[in-house]
Design a protein around this nucleic acid. Structure first.
Lengths: 151, 151
DNA sequence: ACTTTCCTGACCTTCTTGGTCAGGAGTGCG
DNA sequence: CGCACTCCTGACCAAGAAGGTCAGGAAAGT
């Protein structure tokens, strides 16, 4: 139930790409802008490329850029590319699990958990993230009492 | 962003305890009812005990029972007991992270993610789970289009 | 006393996390 | 052409977590 460093890095790098006005951006610049170890970041960017989130060119004047417009890439896309499916239980998707006895309805709970994660992650685009103008689902949730408090 | 076997097991065992009419229930019976390796389950139950979710007595006629009424124990309580804080990013709570550059607003997203998880996990009690009568937040989410579909 | 059941720590194997290192391959420029 | 620059790729690595198992000790009941 935690967000890995890899996913966090991937979203941050994608945000930098989304904000770029023009031309390919070098890995080194992304690493510096977001304070991410360069060699680790390159592996992450490669995964993003394999998943069609990002494109790249080598050589001088090379670098990375988004494969699609920033308002068509969601945070869920980026997270899935590096972390795999969201909200799996015991490495299986919740709809594939069969519960017995008094835990029978647990499946519905995990389905709801996944749906609630999706309702946030699939709603926020990289363009939203960069502009700071979040969809209402985010501002509403962030405004709930204790949303910023530890538990 | 996944649910561990341990958390899944813990909730299922807690559901069995919540459904128990009377008296302590033996670990062996829980393990059998939910098909969980007994020795692993005992470690989990011990953690639940240390977190005040469960109580126990040894010896013949011994076993485990809930420390509080089933409608006062949420799934979030159980999950936190065995997995630690929900929705940490890079092992830190989202409110403690400072983002730079174009990722500045990412913090709000992770806060919203945590709030959305809480809105489900803190709302469902063990009593709800056993009865199958879920709070509306769960039924609403489970009824959204594609909630049961993979991505 | 003796059985039952919880309690605890040690241990184990495999996988994941969060990286680093070394080198190969494509691109652009002089 | 040659060279510098940058991405691309696989190998490796240390530490920790995941998902258990094993052996024994300590309370409770009969």
């Amino acid at each position: 139930m935690r967000v890995s460093a890899k996913a966090d890095y991937a979203v941050r790098a994608a945000a930098e790409l989304a904000a770029a006005e023009e031309g390919p951006i070098k890995g080194g610049r992304l690493a510096e802008a977001q304070d991410i170890p360069l060699q680790f970041l390159e592996h992450i960017l490669l995964e993003l490329k394999h998943h069609g989130i990002v494109r790249a060119r080598r050589g001088a004047k090379g670098g990375y850029w988004l494969a699609r417009p920033a308002d068509e890439v969601t945070i869920a896309d980026v997270v899935r590319a590096v972390e795999g499916p969201i909200a799996h239980v015991q490495s299986s998707p919740p709809e594939a699990i069969e519960y017995r006895g008094n835990a029978e309805h647990l499946q519905e709970v995990w389905i709801a958990v996944r749906a609630s994660l999706r309702s946030v992650l699939e709603e926020v685009t990289l363009a939203d993230l960069v502009s700071g103008e979040m969809p209402s689902v985010v501002t509403d949730l962030a405004a709930t009492p204790d949303a910023w408090a530890a538990r």
